[in-house]
Computed example of a mutant assay.
Amino acid sequence: MLTNDPDGPENYEWAQTITPPETAEYLAGDIIWIILCAGRSAQAARTLEKRVFAALRAGQHAVTAFGYRAKAAAIDRAWLERDADFAAFQAVRAKGDVDAMLEWCGAIPFVGAITKFQLAKNVGFDVCKPDIWLARLAGLPEKTPAARLFPVCQNLCAGLAAATGDRIATVDSVLWLACNKQLLEIDAAGVRFVPRAGARRSIFEAAE
């Protein structure tokens, strides 16, 4: 993966060195990213992120850059209440309890049953996001409830992490990127690696 996609090295380095957000603004950015990612590709979310933050920093509402009004309202809340969120986050993080952090993440408006794992990962907890790609890789039906899906996907990533010496979050991120870039094909016959240099645009760059 690291040699077959230009995003591979940066994605790997990011996942290996994830640290908790140090400021309220960074935490708000993590929350807003999760809200934007739900239901769309990372590439599309990256473009929206650029527009949304331009609006927020100009003192405008998110809806001026993002027409999904309910999600835009959730983004406004995350930005305007970032200091309160950060204080709450620090209190939960101090417990060192993954379940408590997942519960806190899941209570944020428009952070769902699956994306709460992504948010927990992005703020420093070594967990996977049990999304459709990991479900397929783990051999589970796509509509498996999150409560059953997470432990199976976490065990899959933990086993690979133990074998490679990487973090669970890193294994998850590398597998996700390979699926996003269509480097892994998954069907009834199994999983195949198919090198496709430049198959999809970068997950780190916003479209103009």
Rank of each mutant, 00 (worst) to 15 (best):
I168G: 03
Y68F: 13
R136C: 00
I32Q: 03
F66M: 06
A147E: 15
A45M: 11
L102W: 00
D5W: 10
Y12C: 10
C179V: 13
A178Y: 02
A91G: 01
R51I: 01
A169L: 11
F150I: 03
S41I: 06
G106H: 11
A88Y: 03
Q118K: 13
L160W: 14
W33S: 15
C157V: 08
G29K: 06
K50G: 00
R196D: 11
F66K: 06
D85L: 15
A158V: 02
I31P: 04
C128Y: 06
F125Y: 15
S41A: 11
E205F: 02
D83K: 09
I75G: 12
K50F: 04
G165V: 05
W104L: 08
A199M: 11
L160K: 12
A42S: 08
T47K: 02
D172F: 05
G165T: 02
L160Y: 08
E205I: 10
F204S: 00
A28V: 13
R93F: 01
L137V: 07
A135H: 10
A94Q: 12
S173D: 14
A87F: 01
L183E: 10
E208D: 14
A138Y: 06
E25N: 13
E22T: 07
D30Y: 03
M101S: 01
L119H: 07
F66V: 06
W33D: 15
E22C: 03
T164H: 15
C37T: 15
